[in-house]
Amino acid sequence: MKVDNVGNVHSIETFGAFDGPGVRYIVFLQGCPFKCQFCHNRDTWSTRTNKLMSVDEIFNDFSKYKSFYKTGGITVSGGEPLLQLPFLIELFKKFKSEGIHTCIDTSAACYNVRENDKFKELMKYTDLVLLDIKQINDEKHKVLVGSSNKKVLDFAKFLDELGVKVNTRHVLVPGVNDDLDDLITLRKFLDTLNNIVKIDVLGYHSKGQIKWEQMGLTYPLDGVREATKDDVKIAENILKSGFKYMQE
Score class of each variant (00 low, 15 high):
Tyr204Cys: 10
Asp182Thr: 07
Leu193Phe: 09
Val173Gln: 04
Val164Pro: 05
Thr192Met: 01
Leu186His: 06
Asp154Gln: 14
Ile136Phe: 12
Lys207Leu: 15
Val145His: 00
Lys165Val: 07
Asp182Gly: 06
Ser148Gln: 01
Gly175Arg: 01
Phe155Trp: 00
Gly146Tyr: 06
Ile196Ser: 04
Val197Asp: 10
His205Trp: 00
Leu159Asp: 02
Leu186Glu: 07
Leu183Asn: 10
Ser148Lys: 04
Leu172Glu: 05
Leu144Ile: 11
Gln209Glu: 15
His141Asp: 03
Thr185Arg: 15
Leu159Cys: 01
Val201Gln: 08
His141Ile: 07
Lys165Ala: 14
Lys211Gly: 11
Leu159Gly: 03
Leu144Ala: 02
Lys157Met: 13
Gly175Cys: 01
Val145Arg: 04
Lys150Pro: 02
Leu180Asp: 13
Asp200His: 14
Asp160Glu: 04
Asn149Lys: 00
His170Val: 07
Leu193Gln: 13
Lys150Ala: 12
Arg169Gln: 03
Asn149Ser: 05
Phe189Asn: 02
Lys165Ser: 15
Ile199Asn: 08
Ile199Gly: 04
Trp212Thr: 06
Val197Lys: 10
Lys150Glu: 14
Asn167Tyr: 15
Arg187Met: 07
Asp179Thr: 03
Leu183Thr: 02
Leu190Asp: 00
Val145Ala: 09
Lys140Arg: 14
Val152Thr: 14
Lys211Tyr: 04
Gln209Lys: 15
Ile196Trp: 03
Leu159Asn: 02
Ile136Asp: 12
His170Lys: 12
Asn149Gly: 00
Lys157Trp: 03
Asn177Ser: 12
Val171Pro: 05
Val176Arg: 00
Phe155Thr: 12
Phe155Leu: 08
Leu153Asp: 04
Ser148Val: 06
Asp160Ala: 09
Leu162Cys: 02
Ala156Cys: 08
Gln209Ile: 13
Asn167Gly: 14
Gly146Glu: 01
Lys207Ile: 15
Lys165Cys: 11
Lys207Asp: 14
Phe189His: 09
Thr185Cys: 11
Val145Thr: 13
Gln135Trp: 01
Lys188Glu: 15
Asp154Phe: 03
Ile210Asn: 14
His141Tyr: 09
Gln135Arg: 11
Leu144Trp: 05
Phe158Asn: 06
Asp182Ser: 14
Tyr204Glu: 04
Leu180Asn: 13
Leu159Arg: 11
Asp191Ser: 11
Asp160Leu: 01
Gln135Ala: 12
Val166Met: 06
Lys150Asn: 14
Asn149Ala: 06
Leu190Ser: 07
Val201Cys: 13
Ile184Ala: 12
Asp138Leu: 05
His170Thr: 14
Ile210Lys: 15
Asn195Gly: 05
Val143Gly: 00
Phe155Gly: 12
Ala156Glu: 07
Ile196Asn: 02
Val173Tyr: 03
